[in-house]
Write a protein that binds this DNA or RNA. Sequence first.
DNA 1: CGTCAAAAGTCTGGAAACAGACCAATGGAT
DNA 2: ATCCATTGGTCTGTTTCCAGACTTTTGACG
Lengths: 252, 252
Amino acid sequence: MDAPRARASAVRAVSAPLLPLLRPVRSGNAFEETVERLLQAIKLGVVAHGEKLPPERELAAQLGISRVTLREAIRALQDAGFLDVRRGRYGGAFVVYEPPRPGQGDLRRAVKAMGQGGLEDALTFRMAVECGAAEVLASAELTAAQRGTLTRRLEEVNEAAPADYRRLDTAFHLSIAELTGSPLLAAACADARLRVTDLLNAIPVLGPNIEHASVQHAAIVAAILARDPDAARRAVAEHLEGTAALLRGFLS
Amino acid sequence: MDAPRARASAVRAVSAPLLPLLRPVRSGNAFEETVERLLQAIKLGVVAHGEKLPPERELAAQLGISRVTLREAIRALQDAGFLDVRRGRYGGAFVVYEPPRPGQGDLRRAVKAMGQGGLEDALTFRMAVECGAAEVLASAELTAAQRGTLTRRLEEVNEAAPADYRRLDTAFHLSIAELTGSPLLAAACADARLRVTDLLNAIPVLGPNIEHASVQHAAIVAAILARDPDAARRAVAEHLEGTAALLRGFLS
DNA sequence: CGTCAAAAGTCTGGAAACAGACCAATGGAT
DNA sequence: ATCCATTGGTCTGTTTCCAGACTTTTGACG
């Protein structure tokens, strides 16, 4: 139809470096992906020991999969001993899992499972999105309710029993992202956190680290409440660098 | 098996605010999702006018879908006039599309298509991830090749013809993310950019804006090359705020 | 102690997606 | 003029996944 391009036969290949766009449309297998998701939710403590998952129909809708597929995943987690499924009214899929005594050999295995370069990728990604979230939040004018949520989460982490520490730490970090009011940003932070969960679960929760972390957490909250974006970003960066260094330390 | 929980019947529901984890496992329909992806790649100029998509087999593998599904998507884009598919050796799916003369009424439609709160979400997300990427990059020690890529992309934007401007601007922004070496971060930035593409395409490319932007682009590159993370972050923030303001201006 | 609502468990037919083999056209190279 | 590698086009059988109706279990409540 248009002569110019016809003879041109401009067989320019697709530009090499711009291919993050052509990343996978679907993450392989719905069943496996669902198992992974639920497992992460359990390990993150989003659904803690003794709690139950939402009803199958509801959960299936949220995950965008059919009930059949969801049930297969739940069944797998039941067989693996993570869930206890009870039927009848007031039944459901109850979490029967407590974070393991962090072993030492686990860490290398977890790192290996991330693949080549995966660790640095995850840490970099987390640094970028969490710093961004803190900065955004510190730039916004918060309502009293939002400030309350933030300080409450901070207190919860500080008072946490060792067994609950990771879970509440996660909740604290994620609430920063959620309070920005940007679902995309919150999802990105959740994703980033997920990618380091297995690693964090593989290292012990040590007193000095907790104390150090709680000082940093307090600094983050203070900066956000003071509406000082620069300070908030720096505080988060420092905190995450500490975590990253801790991980690298256990690896060397 | 374990008496303690049996009677406990701890029917604590799943904690309300921590549900970004239970987001959809798969984005609905593989076909539609693929069409969307390809369309975005075309509109972003990742595959410019006259270029062709990678061979079907290759592209299907990259997208993680079957060739059948990919072909349906390509067919749809062909019918819609975005692609011209030719067979035989040296054939392929050629892009027959040029960014439209930016209309004025389009913007509101594009915004409406994003849904309630979608605009602020996208802008916030973009601000967070792109600032993060710039900061990460400015913190790293770059090779000569990386510095070269960055400055080359900058020059390309500055010399761009109006018709090519958006495409090269996109390439510039994305290369910052790519140079961080974090695929996750690069994907996040690409995603963020995608979400505002339709909006940007709906507003005219004005001389003063371009000049303003090119000054800011230069500042970004300078800060990165000077290894000044703070300045890099600020420069990106300023630049994106400019874009956001421009969009809001056209909306009011 | 029976009722009943909410939950898991089951079944069936159909649509979507896939894997892989094979066919057909095209145009540069020989 | 012919060859042939490369690319799109087609076909077939299989697997995965889904939508929705229906059944069964359970335990709080009246």
